[in-house]
Write a protein that binds this DNA or RNA. Sequence first.
RNA 1: GCCCCGGUAGCUCAGUUGGAUAGAGCAACUGCCUUCUAAGCAGUAGGUCAAGCGUUCGAGUCGCUUCCGGGGUACCA
Length: 554
Amino acid sequence: MVFPFLKYSKKSPGETANEIGNFIVSEIQEIESFNVINGFLNLVICDDYWVSALLKAVNEENYGFTNISEHSKLVMVEYSSPNTNKPLHLGHIRNNLLGFSLAEILKANGHRVVKTNIVNDRGIHICKSMLAWQKWGRGETPESTGGKGDHFVGELYVEFDKHYKEEIEELVNKGYSKKEAEENASLIQEARELLIKWEAGDKETVNLWRTMNEWVYEGFDVTYRKLGVDFDKIYYESDTYIAGREEVLRGVDNGIFYRKEDGSVWADLTKNDLDHKLLLRSDGTSVYMTQDIGTAKMRFNDFKIDQMIYVVGNEQNYHFEVLSILLDKLGYEWGRDLYHFSYGMVELPSGKMKSREGTVVDADDLIAEMEDYARQMSQELGKLENLTREEAENNYEIIALGALKYFILKVDPKKNMLFNPQESIDFNGNTGTFIQYTYARIKSVLRKAAERNINYKTELSPDTLLSNKEKDIIKRISMFPDIVKEAGKEYSPALIANYCYELVKEYNQFYQDHSILHESNTIKRNLRLILSLTTSRIIKKSMQLLGIKVPERM
RNA sequence: GCCCCGGUAGCUCAGUUGGAUAGAGCAACUGCCUUCUAAGCAGUAGGUCAAGCGUUCGAGUCGCUUCCGGGGUACCA
């Protein structure tokens, strides 16, 4: 594109392009020729440049990734962060997949990463479930009902909400305003009393709390394992809120925060163009913000963190803006540098998901449905006939989770996305399945090459002539390191997903009209085998960055 | 009200930082399995890039205005 040069050359676009083109061809060996169209100068790069680019990709250990050393930047990634009052749903799945993938991408970019989970195991919402169990639980447990612990507790939470709403309605009928009713309902007051008792360390309350949380953790573990996500360090807000409260009180002593007459503690953020923010309730209990201050402090005590990333939905943008300012006010130099990885909501065709109203897509149910569908499709297509039962079952899981993860991660994390349970489960087109399938296809070719004792690693002649499609794929392969860097810089798994899709699409086009093992010209055959091998490796690495497994056959 | 974020094909999404005729997938229609896996490939059709104005050689991309959608603005998390 030569327009910017016209003011220097003072010539027509065509003439300018020709002069530059001639100069480049004579000066740079790798440029074979050029052509000019509509003021655009196109340079043609010669084949042996691409051949050596392919050789570099296939021979370079850790191609596309940056090695980690002990001097690498230490990044802490917080993700998942569930509440222990309900099971995980589709929104949490997006969070977990993004957090895990982000950590993998950062590692590939040479950072040391600590994956952390802050479990929201205390607070008024937990007390609601506890109260519901006391009132309507009839002494049942997940064991006695045979359910998963997180679902068991989740149902209690819904139960509370149901009764609470009924009570509000009654009060409104008696002439209270809606707000008064919400405040004065006996159920919410009982829940609050429970929270105060809990913070005071009341034995019975704490025991119930501990028991119910254990139920939930057992349920979460199953889901996490299924999703393939894990953590290096788990924090519990039941521990961190104390540190938070101390920090807030220290802030009051130092005049950073102020106390109202009713005893509640506030931060005045009007100088930051924000309003006043509550930090401790008038009854002395902590709020969300209090806990996050404490959590941050504990983390920076525990690790020498260079960068802190919070993977939390964009509905909390304001919260993190405030958190950053508060930590800064408290004198933590890293406060300003917190990065809120703010991702969009997952919406359903019916609108937003709401746990209390039961309009959620449950994580466990969704995964199970996808596995069923994978099993059904595999059988319909007559796949996996040569596999053992165990291998087949393993493949259903790989395919189901691959489809789900890819579907979610291919979308720009910043944007809201729509998930249609009926239509979003698809194994054709731009899907994880398509990528896995291509991988399995390549592995099949490579296996057959090995069976026929075809050695394809040594003889890559620089005189190899390339078809356009072969050149396209090599071009794409040589972009991989830049894409990994870009994904690390932009914090975007979607860049990896979309890149990998393009690569795979091109490979399938190539596969369609190029023979590999049947090619009689050994120079060409070797090129195509190396091309296939390299493509398969990049597919595997890309999918690894997304937390997606690839099957050897499918 | 105020503050953020979005609007690209019927649907779900890309669009390489301002460049050539705006791309994929799904859905619809048409071809391709005696050859390395047809969960694939090739093709047809589908667009006022929400609307308008501006910035300049050039705007889906940058700026302003309007319309529409989402989120936030809690002694919820």
